[in-house]
């Protein structure tokens, strides 16, 4: 066991973890933030995407200890109280989700995409979503949501 200390959605946590504990399991099982999902065991689906020090990463492929002393944002940390984040709002407005399983990862990826690209077109969004799989929507409305959000942000 080793001590991990980090800040998640603005809250400081300090806890012992097994060295082999994956960040996603630390977030879900130890911190009870179950918005972050696990959709595969091949590091391909992106349901587990969170931001570590502002960078989008797959939390299923990172150890909790690698995130020691970092600042993490998960899907739970985006909204401001009752007010949804513009990307969350855009997904709701544009029907950007069906079952919702991929959505937390999609939205965390989308925030990162919008942060890195001042102008977004459909082609760029589709390329940038390479690491996020959705089994329901056919991506059409996800892409629409992200472009709509980028125009508001």
């Amino acid at each position: 066991m080793s001590l991990v200390e980090l800040e998640i959605n603005g809250n400081k946590v300090s806890q012992d973890v097994e060295d082999r504990q994956l960040l996603v399991h630390f977030i879900r099982d130890d911190l009870n933030l179950t918005g972050t999902h696990v959709g595969c065991d091949t590091s391909q689906c992106g349901a587990c995407v969170v931001h570590v020090d502002g960078k989008a990463v797959k939390s299923c492929s990172m150890l909790a200890l690698q995130a020691n002393n970092s600042k993490i944002t998960t899907i739970e940390g985006l909204a401001d109280g009752e007010n949804l984040h513009p990307v969350q709002e855009a997904f709701r407005e544009n029907h950007g989700l069906q079952c919702g399983f991929c959505t937390p990862g999609m939205i965390m990826a989308a925030v990162d995409i919008i942060n890195r690209n001042s102008i977004l077109d459909e082609k760029t969004v589709r390329e940038e979503l390479e690491g996020n799989l959705c089994r329901c929507t056919g991506y059409q409305n996800i892409v629409k949501s992200i472009i709509a959000a980028s125009e508001k942000m």
């Binding site: 590091s43 992106g46 995407v49 960078k55 989008a56 990463v57 797959k58 492929s61 990172m62 990826a109 990162d112 995409i113 940038e128 390479e130 690491g131 996020n132």
Partner: peptide, 9 residues
């Protein structure tokens, strides 16, 4: 290479 999340790590 891979996708944006993989490229970040």
């Amino acid at each position: 290479i891979g996708d944006p999340h993989v490229r970040n790590m």
